[in-house]
Design a binder for these strands. Structure first.
Lengths: 245, 245
DNA sequence: TTTACTAGTGTGGATGATACACTTTAAAAT
DNA sequence: ATTTTAAAGTGTATCATCCACACTAGTAAA
């Protein structure tokens, strides 16, 4: 610490000490709510903890922020380390700070949610044996305040899905209208009218209809579509376009 | 540390040490974006820092999380300590973690925004000489990443104001339709049509029109209204009502 | 009595949201 | 070859909401 050479500076240092108090340092965790979609249902990825506290119970994947990274990077690292996934849509959600949220030690946790297409990432290899996908309404009770985190994530996902084209993060690059509708029905947890849905999507004018069909579900086959990200971006920039379901 | 008596437990402890690493502890700050409304314009409250680093520059009010409180409590405490205000609407916004955001030391900051009615709280006494209200577009450059925090807060306030009756937090208990419209015009930063606005508000059916008039602005005088919080709550609970401007 | 100033009020047209049912297509079965 | 089957694909009419728009009412001050 440098030597104070006048009163004002001494005052500065006093204030600074007051504010920058080592005593009050805490551990910052990152917990990830990972949403997946398998062409039918919306799911979340959970793991069985293999360390104390709460060993053996289901939990979100998580880890601690390191001094050398910011929170976004920590979230990406945690997701990658535990699942092998990278280049995934993630968004910060909320910071949880109840004093006793982690009985082991005072820990504040920043939750992130991630969106992935289950099928396309099957072979990236989940690095943890005990990781499992759960249907949203069949998920087990989670440790700490992870249930609350999941509830917040679902609420956020719902709101976002209504106004931003994040749904495509959950689908394979090529998808059918039925799959897109299934996705929105899963996210919003309600049935939608097929014709109205398709009319709405078409009016947004950001999908490209391919000549290719998916013949796996029906005799007739269903045309495949891709999301035209460039067109979407241009519309947003030029006309303030809002993707609104 | 307790003595390990079998391999599994040793593994546990190793994992635990890995995860609970004192090295990675950080300071968690809380910074408050305080919005105020004075019947005419939306403003934010800023202070001139009287300590290093960045002494003399304009900044949000802030402080550090203590071990004995959660973040919401810290935000309330910081707001109260520095402005004397209490019982104020506050909401967590976002957690900022850029590595060099505070040059003094690795600090992560959770931003909160607060909404207050400037007039009603004039005599609560701002505890800091250097605190000042600024019009949104006349605010000076702020330290660290505080500008970004303010931008996020404005965006959030805009979204919230469209779907939740938080506007009333910024108004005195009794207000005129004109004041309410001024408020929304300030928040949304655009002119609204008087008749459409009043029709919309009336259709929501959550205001009580008083017999009293505010005679201070016009010869004719304008009726005063109060927000019927109970009625609003009941509508939300019973019909899933959404306050939508 | 006049002036000045803001409060207060209603309608029609455009746009978007919702409800709703039959035809098409191609594979599989006969 | 013909029939069956199962999902894909397609349009319209009604209703609700959004938006543009201009004059009268009321009171204090001159």
């Amino acid at each position: 610490m440098k030597i104070t050479n006048n009163l004002e500076e001494a005052e500065d240092l006093k204030m600074q000490l007051n504010y920058y108090d080592k005593e009050d340092q805490v551990l910052l965790a990152v917990d990830c709510i990972i949403f997946g979609f398998d062409k039918e249902n919306l799911k979340i990825l959970l793991i069985k903890r293999n360390f104390e506290p709460e060993k053996g119970k289901w939990s979100l994947i998580g880890g601690f922020l390191k001094k050398t990274e910011n929170l976004d990077q920590a979230a990406v690292r945690v997701l990658h380390t535990l699942t092998g996934l990278s280049d995934i849509y993630m968004e910060q959600l909320y910071t949880h700070s109840k004093i006793d949220r982690d009985p082991g030690q005072r820990t504040i946790s920043v939750s992130y949610y991630a969106l992935i297409d289950v099928e396309s990432h099957k072979f990236d290899g989940i690095q943890i044996d005990s990781a499992r996908w759960f249907e949203l309404n069949e998920a087990p009770d989670l440790i700490f305040d992870h249930n609350e985190m999941v509830q917040r994530a679902i609420a956020r996902l719902r709101r976002r899905a209504m106004t931003k084209p994040i749904g495509f993060e959950l689908l394979p690059e090529k998808f059918t209208m039925r799959q897109l509708q299934n996705l929105y029905e899963s996210i919003l947890d309600k049935k939608l009218d097929k014709r109205n849905f398709i009319n709405k999507i078409n009016s947004l004018d950001v999908l490209i209809k391919l000549d290719e069909k998916d013949m796996s579900v029906s005799r007739k086959g269903a045309y495949l579509y891709v999301f035209d990200k460039e067109k979407y971006k241009k519309k947003v920039e030029e006309d303030g376009f809002i993707f609104k379901i």
